[in-house]
């Protein structure tokens, strides 16, 4: 359980780094441009595609972060040997509900495909945020395979103050 909390904390830090550093950079015939993760989210913000911006922001930024926060909130006190925090069951239930909608790992594959598509037109350089996200995906997968939901639920119930 300690490992899961550590991995979740790592993922959260990487996520924050990924938001602020440049994501991808392109150079083409003297022109260059870089985009951050926020820039990607804002790609649809023109005209009536605006709702998609919120959806995109939720899927690659808000929900992954919220899920990590909920997991740390649920598991950290128990990993330290304390009783679960108040409403820990609620937090874990939300974390589980958010799971299918947090799509960072799909996003990174999308980034890889975009690289192939652009590289025909321009030179692309990977920014720090790209690497942060790539590591984040590995950490997240590792964390999710380590974590057994049934065990977490059982432990939550057994350690609950009665």
């Amino acid at each position: 359980m300690t490992q899961i909390v550590m991995l979740a904390a790592t993922a959260a830090i990487l996520m924050v780094a990924a938001v602020f550093f440049p994501f991808l950079e392109i150079h083409a015939s003297g022109l260059s441009r870089w985009s951050s993760l926020l820039g990607v989210v804002a790609a649809f913000s023109e005209g009536w595609m605006l709702p998609l911006t919120f959806g995109l922001g939720a899927m690659i930024l808000v929900l992954p972060l919220a899920r990590l926060a909920a997991l740390i909130y649920t598991l950290a006190p128990m990993a330290l040997g304390h009783r679960p925090a108040p409403h820990a069951a609620l937090a874990f239930r939300w974390a589980e509900a958010m799971r299918p909608w947090a799509m960072v790992e799909i996003f990174i594959l999308g980034a890889a495909i975009s690289l192939v598509k652009i590289s025909a037109l321009a030179d692309v350089a990977l920014g720090p945020a790209f690497w942060a996200l790539a590591v984040l995906v590995v950490v997240t997968v590792l964390k999710d395979t380590l974590m057994c939901r049934m065990t977490v639920w059982k432990t939550l119930e057994e350690r609950r103050p009665s």
């Binding site: 022109l31 595609m49 998609l52 899927m59 594959l109 999308g110 495909i113």
Partner: peptide
């Protein structure tokens, strides 16, 4: 399946050189 939507978002946020080359998302993305 969401992958293609992400590709469109990344491409259109990156390729914005005004007249020279610009990629804008189409309605199909939504």
């Amino acid at each position: 399946s969401m992958i293609d939507v992400f590709v469109v978002a990344i491409l259109s946020s990156l390729v914005r050189f005004g007249f020279t080359a610009t990629i804008t998302p189409g309605i199909a993305a939504l």
